[in-house]
Nucleic acid binder design. Structure first.
Lengths: 206, 206
DNA sequence: AATATATTGACCACGCTGGTCACTGATGAT
DNA sequence: ATCATCAGTGACCAGCGTGGTCAATATATT
């Protein structure tokens, strides 16, 4: 049904729903807003998903899949190189955010969600999600000898992760809204490399 | 009227309103929710503030004042020591968030606000706010000789700011919700110092 | 006791909600 | 040309939560 829809339309619906659920809790999000921004009729949305709850949960599973398949499982952890891993992660994230700008906001919102209507289901989807292991595994087999001796500790790792999160977030803000020309994104990735190099200089052996 | 209220009650109302406006846009925020969490009657809220819009704008001015007076103007910039400045900023922020946990969320929400009902007024309050100059000024007269030679550039400054923002945010999350015992906050500030030291080691001359 | 002031919460008209369904338009088979 | 099938529309529904009011009550002051 919904799955084999014209891809343009499909993406319009997904993104409209993501935008609505990204900044509002489940109960406050409006299906009317979704259909208007997606430029479809109310009826067809409910034919596709049955009801609001199904749409919401479909969206959550969809987004989790995208994140797991296109971000986490694509990162090469063999060398245990923290900065390399974070760089790869950042690039993949930027690519996903380009297609779905509100993915991060939506996930953040689901973490705050307490509505009894969907809370349980969110939890059980989360329980079944196997690759969340990988999300943590990424940072469990790091080669600490890459760091200067004084930085071979957990706190430094946390700190570097915050730094690159901040960087990714900033870069995402920069091209949110504007039409992403491929040259523009290359520009962004150059900036990204620049910050990565500073961190490498600061914390890695020379 | 509202100003010379029993301080407990005053704070209950302010925090209830902050909590409601922090995660919902103006139009979606409910005065009913505010009065219930503040444990006051609907009537008295509207006697104090007249209407929703006045409450919202009062809150914005109040929060801006708190931020300007208790955070930005308290920081000693004389030495031009970036890391010292950021550390001071972080501590002040944590102290304000202790009294008003939703200040940061509320300010973030106002930046997204597009409701025509309040947008103009927010803008004009912002225009009159003189100390917003200081907010930037903090980082305009830095002593770059404190940094190792290879880090004397704008990008490093941005990067360090992101890092400590991330750190502050993390620490705030840690004691959000839980009752803040003074020993617990000392514990937190120790952690804070720990991260600050790492950054100093990494970027400052030895 | 009398007056003034602070506070309550039931009440209102109204707008928006999730969801439905009789209808339309398009496609393709005969 | 006729019909059957089915994707898609949007006016419509009962119900709920909205910002705001105000007569009634509790409290403080004289």
């Amino acid at each position: 049904m919904f799955e084999n829809l014209d891809p343009d339309k499909k993406e319009r619906i997904l993104n409209a729903a993501l935008a609505e659920f990204a900044h509002k809790e489940y109960a406050d999000a409006s299906t009317n807003n979704i259909v208007t921004t997606a430029q479809i009729s109310k009826g067809i949305l409910f034919r596709y998903f049955g009801n609001k709850k199904n749409l919401y949960l479909y969206l959550y599973k969809y987004v989790r899949n995208v994140i797991d398949n296109e971000i986490y499982s694509q990162v090469d952890t063999d060398k245990g190189d923290l900065i390399f891993i974070l760089k790869e992660l950042g690039i993949r994230k930027l690519e996903v955010y380009k297609r779905h700008p509100d993915v991060a906001g939506f996930i953040a919102q689901t973490k705050r969600e307490k509505s009894s209507e969907v809370y349980e289901d969110l939890m059980s989807i989360e329980r079944e999600r196997s690759s969340q292991l990988r999300e943590n595994y990424l940072f469990n087999n790091l080669d600490m000898t890459l760091f200067k001796p004084e930085f071979r500790n957990e706190n430094t790792i946390k700190l570097i992760r915050w730094t690159l999160d901040g960087c990714t977030k900033e870069l995402q803000e920069n091209y949110k809204g504007q039409d992403i020309q491929d040259p523009a994104i290359d520009e962004l990735l150059k900036d990204y490399d620049l910050y990565i190099d500073i961190i490498r200089q600061a914390f890695y052996c020379r």
